[in-house]
Amino acid sequence: MKRMFCAILIVSSIVAASQDKLANVLIIGDSISIGYTPHVRQLLQGKANVIHNEGNAGPTSKGLEEIEKWLGDKKLDLIHFNWGLHDLCYRNPESNRLNKRDKKHGTITNSLEQYEKNLEILVDRLKKTGAKLIWASTTVVPEGEPGRIAGDEVKYNKLAKKVIRKHGIPINDLYAMTKIFPEQLFNAPGNVHLTKKGYQILARQTALHIDYQLELQK
């Protein structure tokens, strides 16, 4: 019994040591990233410890409030991040729709001007971690989405790309990928969320970007 206990301790120590040697990867993003993160974690098993920020990252304004908590005190080797889908969302406090989304009578969460200012601050903060950064473009907004205007994501992505390129950060273009997705990969017409297969496709592209950047750092 004592030998078995010692063996378990040795194996546990080896596993812990092995985990400590893996790269620490933080994914910051909205519900789309929450959907693909488990698949990314599986694809990078044995290569990286993949974690996601607590909950939904929401708009850049929430990012400014929560970023220190998400970063924590652990050394991060790579941060894959995105904001945008919630910045361009219209909300109405009196709406009965889910999360008060209402593009007809609501107010946009963050204008393009405010989005740019917030994103600049967030990028500067992320750069101070010393981690390699990867930006993910905002996924497509389909026609009929209750709180978002299809095409606004193009404007926000264009502005984000200007900020991101200025800082020399590589881009994982999830917009281009979801733009060509067939309807079957979305949960429902007018829904920004994807099916399991849709998230798996985004995960494969995201894992490739992360793995490539981690290899460059070796």
Rank of each mutant, 00 (worst) to 15 (best):
R3L: 15
R3S: 13
I8D: 11
L9S: 10
I10W: 05
S12Q: 11
A17K: 10
L22P: 12
A23W: 03
N24R: 11
N24K: 12
L26Y: 07
L26H: 10
L26C: 06
S31V: 10
S33V: 04
G35W: 00
H39R: 12
V40T: 08
R41M: 07
R41D: 08
L43A: 14
K47P: 10
V50Q: 01
I51C: 08
H52L: 10
N53W: 01
N53V: 04
G55S: 13
N56S: 12
N56L: 09
T60K: 07
L64A: 11
L64S: 12
E65I: 10
E68P: 02
W70P: 03
G72P: 07
G72Q: 04
F81A: 00
L85Q: 01
D87C: 03
Y90N: 08
N92K: 08
N92W: 05
E94T: 03
E94S: 14
S95N: 03
N96Q: 15
R97F: 14
R97W: 12
L98D: 15
K100I: 04
R101G: 09
D102V: 05
K103M: 06
H105I: 03
I108Y: 01
L112S: 13
Y115T: 00
K117P: 01
L119E: 04
E120H: 14
E120V: 12
L122Y: 02
K128W: 09
T129D: 08
T129C: 03
W135I: 01
W135H: 14
W135D: 00
A136I: 01
S137L: 04
T139A: 01
T139S: 00
P142L: 09
P142N: 06
R148L: 03
I149Q: 03
D152P: 01
D152W: 02
N157W: 02
K161M: 12
K166Y: 13
K166Q: 15
H167R: 11
H167K: 12
G168M: 06
I169P: 08
I171F: 03
N172M: 05
Y175G: 00
M177T: 15
T178P: 04
K179W: 03
F181K: 01
P182M: 07
E183D: 15
E183M: 10
Q184S: 15
L185Y: 05
F186T: 02
G190W: 04
N191P: 00
V192N: 03
T195C: 02
G198S: 05
A203E: 01
R204G: 11
T206L: 05
A207Q: 08
H209I: 02
H209C: 13
H209W: 13
Y212I: 09
